[in-house]
């Protein structure tokens, strides 16, 4: 059982680190802000989630596990909100810059309020 938990932990942390590195490469490699946001979302969801889940298997179930789960939850709840705020700010900026219709034909109306 202990052995199994150790193997699971190794696998999770290794895959998580792989996603972290891939996300960082994506942030460097992709051409513009929006596409970079996809790469950033990758580190926020899978990279962080898998590494922290792997750490969960390193300790006895207890208060430390609760904290790890809380960190994962906070990251997963805040990451889309921050990404959306960033996307909205970029679109707002482009609208202000005077391009009434952006490069992809969208026309104003960046309100996020339903």
């Amino acid at each position: 059982m202990d052995m199994l938990a150790d193997v699971a932990s190794w696998a999770l942390i290794a895959v998580g680190t792989f996603f972290l590195l891939t996300g960082a490469i994506g942030i460097l490699r992709l051409p513009d802000v929006f596409t970079r946001m996809h790469a950033a979302g990758m580190t926020d969801t899978m990279g962080a989630g898998l590494v922290l889940a792997g750490l969960c298997f390193q300790v006895e179930a207890g208060l430390v596990t609760v904290r790890l789960v809380l960190v994962i939850l906070f990251l997963w709840f805040t990451s889309p909100v921050a990404t959306h705020a960033l996307a909205r700010a970029v679109l707002h900026d482009r609208d202000l810059a005077g391009s009434a219709s952006g490069p992809d034909g969208r026309n104003g109306g960046t309100s996020s309020k339903p």
């Binding site: 972290l20 942030i27 970079r36 946001m37 950033a40 960033l86 900026d93």
Partner: peptide
């Protein structure tokens, strides 16, 4: 653009969270 920097810094912060956790272990 400034937004690239904000995106990168936000991401850097997420990685710092992980770094602190890993350093703790």
């Amino acid at each position: 653009t400034a937004y690239d920097r904000v995106l990168a810094l936000n991401n850097f912060g997420t990685k710092t969270v992980l770094l602190i956790a890993l350093l703790g272990f």
